[in-house]
Structure formats: structure tokens, C-alpha cells
Amino acid sequence: MIAENATTPVLEARQVRKTYRRGAIATEVLKGVDLTVARGEFLSVVGASGSGKSTLLHVLGTLDQADGGEVRLDGERIDNAGARRRDRLRNQAFGFIFQFYHLLPELSALENVLTPLYISSSAWAWPFRRADAVRRARALLERVGLGHRLDHKPRELSGGEMQRAAIARALISGPRVLLADEPTGNLDEDAGAEIARLLRALNAEEGLTIIMVTHNLDMARSTDRVVRLTHGRVDLSPTVLGNRPAPGGHHSPNDGDDRLSLERRPASMAVLGAGASPPAHPEVFGVGHFPQR
């Protein structure tokens, strides 16, 4: 690990721009996004469809390249890195989880978790690394509660189980930041809550930095900070919502929900720009409860 200054943000985006072109039509998805993520922070990014949340996540994770602006990881610029370095960053510095899990169907749960190590290891070195790698993968799968399904193929797993395998895969290389793109978007409520709890626990117990794009406002509320994107810009200064809980004082999605929602509701309202009267029930916000695709 790089020697880190405690005050350096783990990930920092400055005036990030991204334009997609389809033929003659250019769509500016990100119009100068500023974002700072502290170490150990659990940040959620919300916004309407097409507001650029996923694109931001991809740009942060070097899966896509920005057209302008800067992205820094532990103070080092990564947005202009070469293909080789970006590949290595994705392999080691970032862990991705996706709405559709994106496990490789030919491989078992264990092998899927091992894939990032497969990629980073040469065929010659693998036999020497294998035992250690398998031990780590097993431990991770047990950590996410899949210890009993090591050799199952993705099609033999439920959605929640697949997502847990995907989380284990994202963690195997010991990433500095976990990037989650609507991790519960394709799951039913219970399974989604499970995943939310798991992410929360990973953040709390292992100090994992998580950036999560979500439609689920309940879930967003359970994070340390909510960033809202509207039309390619950060809509609200993060500090408005940024009531970081005291260390160790993380909330489970339900615990303290009232307090948080009371605190946040007015801000969220502004962000959402939805109606004048506060909804009677948080569910009303929950447009994102349902799968978006």
C-alpha cells in the first residue's frame, strides 16, 4: 500500500466532464463534477436516470475516460493513466459490483472470486499463488455468507447470492475503493436489505471506502453521505447532507431511520424537487425500490 496521508482524500474528482457521441449527436453526461471521498467513507450517489451517476462511477474507476477534469486516487492523477496502468488499477485499486452481478457463467462461485487474481497472475506463477489465493477466496465467501456454495455456478445461485459472490470478487484484491453500481437494483426487498447490511458491515468493520450509485433512497439514507447528480452536475454541496456519524456509530438501514429521515428530509426534498408536502412515508421516495431496467 502507498503511504497515505490521513488527510488526503482517497478519491477526488475535479471538474470531470464526459460527452458521449452517437453520430452527430453529442450528449454531455458529466458537465464538471466535483467530488471528494474520504477514506473509510460510505458515499451514495443518487440522481434520476441519465443524470450521469453510472458514468461518474465508471470514470472514477477508470472503466471509462473523462474528456476533461481530473481524478486523483490517493493524490495521484489516474484519469490520464495509460491503458496498462488503468488495467492494473481496476484489478487492484478498485472493486466493482454491478446491478446485474456480472459473474462469469462458466466459472463456479469460488473461481469467479478468484478471477481478479487469475488476471493479475501469470500462468507460471499461479501454481505457487494458488493455495493462498484459494484460502483468501474461501474466507471472503464465508465472510459474505456463501461459504456453503463455493462450487455452485452462478445459474445455481439466487440473485442475492450472486451479488454476494460479486462483492467477494470485488474484495479479493484488497481494493482501496469499492464502486457499487446499483447493487440492489435487481434484487427483491429482503435480498437488497441483506446486501445493504453487508456493505454497511464491510464499511464499518473493515473501514472499506464505498461509493454506491443507487435509486433506493432508503438505502442512500443509510450511508454516510448522499451526493445527488442532476443533469451532469453535483446538485447539492455534500456538506449539506454530510452529517457523518461518529466513528463506530454506523447505522443499520432501519436503526435511527426516523432521526435521519427527519434530518435529511428537507434537504432530500429540495434535491428531489418533489412536491411541497413531506411524504407521509419514506417509501414515497422509493422510486428506486423497483428494478430500473
Partner: peptide, 16 residues
Amino acid sequence: TRDIGILKSLGASNWG
């Protein structure tokens, strides 16, 4: 196609 995207998101290079 999707699996190729997955591999790339996990750090596989074009050459790989």
C-alpha cells in the same frame, strides 16, 4: 460481450 466487459472491469487488458 458482457463477459468481456466484466473481465475488463476486473483489470483484463485488451491484449489479454
